[in-house]
Design a binder for these strands. Structure first.
Lengths: 141, 141
DNA sequence: CTTTGTGCAAATTCTTTGCACCAAA
DNA sequence: TTTGGTGCAAAGAATTTGCACAAAG
């Protein structure tokens, strides 16, 4: 419901496929890849093509309903949360985690050095807390 | 000369090809793509293969001699300047421009939320000052 | 009926890999 | 002579494109 209304508000024709993709982004904060979205939605919409997922995500990005995150070496990732925040990717488990910005909000500017800014991405890479703990444990042997 | 010494200091075997790539990065602050580097160096080293450029840039990144910038949709870009700074890409002319960080230096942390950070990228996209001026001028007709 | 959306298959493009040859210590 | 570097050609993989069919207004 919510996803459909959201699309209409943004001026996007709410097809079954587009609603499904938008809903997936709103209910899964995992920064999924095209493939992950496609595989997940394939269960409920068996005819859904990857092309349509690509098309839809491009459309959503253009209308500001989603953000394309360029953090992953091999795949584009998408985020339905369009509020200012950063992202962290663990090079061990590949998960992408949100990084709230306490004092970095001033980075999300509309202009710098005379350049007009349309989007900002703050990307971190490293080892996440979970993987670090796991590594420390296995090392103890 | 400088490039060769730099490589040795970092523990990298200074082959002709590696020196050339490193030197190119140090003397061209344009955040070049693999292809741009290859084409530029091809003149002086006709046998240089793209594979070697790929290998070398990977090596330089691993040894901290260069940074891989994930700002370009279609190509990896590289920067020989490893000091903390952001990048801006103009969606009109595709140039990548350095963005100095006056008050954002605290973004380059070693830890956030328990996650160990290995690298940080601050990426801006929009229209650069030059393209904006040009657009404004052509609009006046 | 006309416009827009979907999906299959093919094409494109950047990057990686396998392997043989070359160079240096 | 042994290790490491280079480069060609082929493979790999994510994304885009062309086109025909389906759906919606």
């Amino acid at each position: 419901m919510k996803a459909a209304r959201y699309l209409v508000e943004l001026g996007i024709q709410p097809s079954v496929q587009r609603i499904a993709v938008m809903d997936y982004l709103l209910t899964h904060k995992t920064h999924p890849t095209v493939d992950e979205i496609h595989q997940a939605l394939h269960k409920s919409i068996p005819t859904l093509s990857k092309t349509t997922v690509y098309n839809t995500l491009k459309l959503l990005s253009e209308y500001g309903a989603a953000i394309m995150i360029d953090i992953d070496e091999h795949n584009k990732r998408f985020d339905g949360d369009t509020s200012p925040h950063g992202h962290f990717q663990c090079s061990s488990c590949n998960r992408v985690i949100d990084i709230p910005l306490d004092n970095g909000r001033e980075l999300f500017l509309s202009e710098v050095d005379g350049h007009t800014i349309a989007s900002v991405q703050l990307l971190y890479k490293g080892i996440c807390a979970g993987c670090k703990a796991h590594n420390d444990k296995t090392k103890q042997n």
